[in-house]
Structures are given as structure tokens and as C-alpha cells.
Design a protein around this nucleic acid. Structure first.
Length: 439
RNA sequence: GUGGGUAUAGCUUAGUUGGUUAAAGCGCCAGUUUGUGGCACUGGAGACCGUCGGUUCGAAUCCGACUAUCCACCCCA
């Protein structure tokens, strides 16, 4: 393949044969969101670059090297959203939604864009289900958000997911902690890897995350955040854990979890799968109490998470999770000859108005080929229409699964109701419903 | 941005130490009883062997570059 028939690096297509899986995931996710009182919000794919610099943080990798940023014709710096939180919060602030009953609970299913090197579970365009709960300071909110994520995963039938949580404190206690970290790591400055050396000044917490064996070893003895967080943060974290325990949500505390976006405070968490390679974080989020103010709004303690839909799909396929079957064609009409073709078109049209998926020949195929086609597309019933049928005004309706056939009358060559699949699935039931055919 | 693997039909692959018309299965199309699918059989279409360049009498096969893709690091969902 060459020329223009190729997708952009790091992007993928959802093909017709797979779309039903996405529909299922999207439906499940929004159903669960609704159970928790979240309503959908839709925001633009692009925002002012500044919005992401301010919220995500201008020292983060995402902002520094992964954003799709460009100037529009008016000279404005525009960026394709690299994540969903910033836009959602911006919109909520802009429209003053925080003046209504708090918390504001919004969810979204959108595409995000990051200029990264593609890999298993990592794309340049990917899709996220995200929830944002704005104006909820209590630890019950943290537990609730985590339970929402947990419920989505369970409903989708996903197994073997571990939940890891941590608290990274508030700006005050975190400042003390990073100072302590700096001091600790500075002592072994000459042993740290290159990247960690540069992290030392900017964001020493990231060193805890380093995979290099030497840094890891040094990090073992590093001060723990949980020893530094203030009483209030500690109390908050303890209550979150208590609520999760009470709700029966299993988790482990992982002091190494450090979110890469600057807006996080206090509780952070990740749902991790080991089934899809190294990019196993399937859902991650936390609290961001300072974000609304950072964007010029009032103080609104908030939190949320993002769930990577491609990753979710990968896990489901890997684990063989069941997807509800795709809706198949109800009726296929195989006409023979021009007059019959015209009748078939008419009958299809009427059947569709009754809510049945009905098809007829559009490829000029012979009868046998049409039957094969009907079989391939999974048609539940077929109706052969030839001269005999047109003359006798009756035809045989065939159940493609059982092979049974039944005579149907066609006085005016028209069937207005084929069958009601929700009530009458069997051929026997069909018989009675066919008595009511208006013809 | 750094590393490693891979690139042959729509899909999954074979292709022996370089040798002439590049194979197979699946899928697709058409036939095998005159008006009925699934099974079986027969036939057909479909590949400039990722691109460009090099070595050679001769390259899908060897070398180089590029591109794409996969995996890992980094980072993140």
C-alpha cells in the first residue's frame, strides 16, 4: 500500500466489524457514570495552549514534548487536548456551573492527542473515558470516584486488575517532602542516572519512579511521603482507605505512585493490568484541589480520573471478556427477475419501517449466491421471491438457523410486519405473528 | 528522544546454500441439479516480495539508507 491510503502514525481505525465493541464499552461506561450521578460534558478538541501549560504543568513531559501545538490563522497558539481534565474544568468554570448544586459531576468520552512514540497501549490519538467531580472536599468523594472506576471494570468483566493508591499531600507538605528528597538524593548525586540528575532540581519525586537498578536501590532508602504529609492530608488519606475497606474495594498503598501531571494533590491512584504489556495503567487519576484556582476560578476541591479505552479494549480481548452480539440482519429477500426485484425493494422498505433490518440483492447475484450472502451476513430469515410467488401471491419464509420454512401470503405483494424478535424468537411463535400480517 | 525485532495476496504464513512462470491455507468471486445458505469438490481474480540504491551474469533471498510497523526505555491513559 502506498500514497495516501495510509493512516497517520500512532492512529488507528475502528472498523465496522469492531465498532460494536466500542459501543458496548461506551454504553457501559456512561451507564455506570449515570449511576453515580455524572452527566456528560462535551468540550472542543482544541484549547488555548496556555490552558494545558497552566493545568498540566509546563515542566511536565506532556506539555514539554508531547503536545500537538500550532498557531491558527489568527496567530493564536492552539493545542489538541492531551488529556480531558483541563478542558472539562475550564468549561465548568467558564459557564459558572459551580454556582449550581455542588459537586458538579461531569463525564466525557473523547479523543486525546500526544506526540509520543507508539507502542503497545500507547497511541498518538487515543480515547479516554473521564469523570470529574468538582467541589467535593470530603474523603468519601475520593472513595466514590475510585469505586466508580472499579465498577466499570467489573461490569466489563475485566479481571486481574490491581488498584494502587497513594497520597502525594498538599502543596505545603509536599514542599517539605521534596526538600527532604533533594537533600537525600543530593548525597548520592554521582551515582544517579542522567535523567534522574536532571530531575533532582525540577521534580525529585520522579526519581522514586526510575526503573534504573542503581537509582532504584538508592530510592529504597529515600524518605517516604507518608512520613511527611501533614495531619490533615494524613487524616484524609486514612479516611479514604477506611471508606474503600468498608466498601470492600481491595487496594494496596504504593508510595511510588507519582502522577506526572502537576495538578494532582492528596489522593492519587492507578488501576493496573499485567495483561497488556508495559503500559498497564488502565485507569488513573486523583484529587486536584488547586486546579480551579490555578485557572482563575474559585477554590474548588475536586478530583477525577481518566480511563484509556484502547487499553480497556486490549485487556478485554486478551482476557476473552464477552461482548454482546452485534445486531444482525432480520430479513433478506432474494428476488429473481426484475418484477420481483421491485417487489423486494418495496417489502424491505416496509419491513424497515416496522423496525426490522431488511436487505435485498444489490449486486445482481443469482439465487444460490444470494442465499450464501444471506448466510454470511447472518440474516435470521430469508424470503425467495420469483414469478411463482408473484403469481400465487404467497412465498416461503425461511428460518436460516433451523432451516424451517413457512408459507406467507402476499396478496398485494407486501408484508408490513415480519416478526417481533424480542417476543417471538422461535419459528413456532413466528407462525402466530404471521397471521396478523397486513398484506 | 534512545534501543531491539519485523516488513511476501484482503488476512495468517511458506519460500531450502542467491537461479528463471513467487507458493499454501483462510477470505473473496463463479460453478458443481433445473429456484434455496452452512459441508465437500472444481475453477477464477488477487503480490511490481515496504521504498530507493548497491553487490552479482542473475536478488523476495546478500549489503546500505529510508519509511512503516511491533516491542521495550522514557512518559502516561
Amino acid at each position: 500500500m502506498d500514497l495516501i491510503a495510509e493512516a497517520i502514525k500512532g492512529t488507528g481505525d475502528v472498523l465496522p466489524g469492531n465498532a460494536y465493541k466500542w459501543h458496548y464499552i461506551e454504553k457501559t461506561v456512561s451507564d455506570v457514570a449515570a449511576l453515580f450521578g455524572f452527566r456528560e460534558i462535551r468540550t472542543p478538541v482544541f484549547e488555548k495552549t496556555e490552558l494545558f501549560e497552566r493545568s498540566v504543568g509546563d515542566t511536565t513531559d506532556v506539555v514539554q514534548k508531547e503536545m500537538y501545538t500550532f498557531n491558527d490563522k489568527g496567530g493564536r497558539s492552539i493545542t489538541l487536548r492531551p488529556e480531558g481534565t483541563a478542558g472539562a474544568v475550564r468549561s465548568i468554570l467558564e459557564h459558572g456551573l459551580f454556582n449550581e448544586a455542588l459537586p458538579v459531576k461531569a463525564y466525557y468520552i473523547t479523543s486525546c492527542y500526544r506526540y509520543e512514540k507508539p507502542q503497545a497501549g500507547r497511541l498518538r490519538e487515543f480515547h479516554q473515558f473521564g469523570v470529574e467531580c468538582i467541589g467535593a472536599a470530603a474523603p468519601t468523594a475520593d472513595a466514590e470516584i475510585i469505586m466508580l472506576g472499579d465498577m466499570v471494570l467489573k461490569r466489563l468483566g475485566i479481571k486481574n486488575i490491581s488498584l494502587e493508591i497513594n497520597s502525594i499531600g498538599c502543596p505545603q507538605c509536599r514542599a517539605k517532602y521534596t526538600a527532604a528528597l533533594k537533600e537525600y538524593f543530593a548525597a548520592s548525586k554521582d551515582k544517579l542516572c542522567e535523567t534522574c540528575l536532571s530531575r533532582l532540581d525540577r521534580n525529585p519525586m520522579r526519581i522514586l519512579d526510575c526503573k534504573s537498578p542503581i537509582c532504584r536501590e538508592i530510592a529504597e532508602g529515600a524518605p517516604k511521603i507518608l512520613d511527611y504529609i501533614c495531619d490533615e492530608c494524613n487524616d484524609h488519606f486514612n479516611q479514604v482507605k477506611a471508606h474503600l475497606n468498608a466498601a470492600g474495594v481491595k487496594f494496596t498503598v504504593n508510595p511510588r505512585i507519582v502522577r506526572g501531571l502537576d495538578y494532582y494533590t492528596k489522593t492519587v491512584f492507578e488501576f493496573i493490568s499485567n495483561d497488556i504489556g508495559s503500559q498497564g495503567a488502565v485507569c488513573a487519576g486523583g484529587r486536584y484541589d488547586g486546579l480551579a484556582e490555578e485557572l482563575g476560578g474559585p477554590h474548588l476541591p475536586s478530583l477525577g480520573f481518566g480511563m484509556g479505552l484502547e487499553r480497556i479494549l486490549m485487556v478485554m480481548e486478551k482476557q476473552g471478556c464477552p461482548f454482546p452480539e452485534e445486531k444482525k440482519i432480520d430479513l433478506y429477500i432474494a428476488p429473481m427477475g426484475g418484477a420481483a426485484a421491485s417487489e423486494a425493494v418495496k417489502i424491505c422498505s416496509l419491513a424497515r419501517e416496522e423496525g426490522f433490518a431488511a436487505l435485498t440483492d444489490v449486486a445482481g447475484r443469482g439465487l444460490k449466491a444470494q442465499m450464501k450472502y444471506a448466510d454470511k451476513i447472518g440474516a435470521k430469515f430469508t424470503l425467495v421471491l420469483g414469478e411463482n410467488e408473484l403469481n400465487s401471491k404467497s412465498a416461503r419464509l425461511k428460518n436460516m438457523q433451523s432451516g424451517e420454512q413457512i408459507d406467507v401470503e402476499l396478496p398485494d405483494g407486501v408484508i408490513s410486519a415480519i416478526y417481533d424478535e424480542t417476543i417471538k424468537n422461535t419459528f413456532a411463535d413466528l407462525e402466530s405473528s404471521l397471521e396478523n400480517l397486513k398484506i
